[in-house]
Design a binder for these strands. Sequence first.
DNA 1: AGTGCGATTGACT
DNA 2: GTCAATCGCACTA
Length: 205
Amino acid sequence: MPPALPATAPRRIKTSELPVEPVRLARFLIGKLVMRRLPEGLAGGRIVETEAYVAGDAAGHGFNGPTPRNKSLFGPPGHAYVYIAYGTSMMLNVSSSAVGIGHGVLIRALEPVVGIGLMEQNRGTLKLRDLARGPGRLTQALDIDLRFDGIDLCGPGDLWLATDGATAPKIGRSVRIGLTKEAHRPLRFFARGNPFVSGPKSLNV
DNA sequence: AGTGCGATTGACT
DNA sequence: GTCAATCGCACTA
């Protein structure tokens, strides 16, 4: 399956365009772009994999209410929640729902589109498929860290969500990756068959 | 103040 | 395919 061709130049997505409900947001984001302005130039990629974390979901960081780490989840929708997993990997989430509700969508993988040379440099590898396949890898490729926690991803900053009007890919659905709690919930979404999707092959059909 | 645990990755068989 | 490094954070006392 070849990647969808862009229909127009990428433009920033407005907050009002984002679905409020996290599962709908997770689906909406498949095929959209994460863009990053670096000192050396522009970099970004197409979102090919997301996971929703919803109310009453014990696997979600918002489950036990706001804490210093997860407060961005409870802020306004369309903002970044960045946290560190396993001591080393940064995770990028998009906050969802209204203020006070700890919903979010984890961006799990990108298909590199712009600034591939910069991503190669940031990742320390030339393997295109490994540049942003995985939540920790994509943040490393785009130099996203805790400085971006809480920023508006629909704002004028150096990290934003964009669309180029490309045709939405066929979306697959599965259980989420790497969880011990709530492992059965089918809240992962992905561009079917896209080689830049992370996780086992069995979860990319 | 101490403890246990991950929304992972990269190295290795 | 398997496996362990790694450390910030939330939770208990």
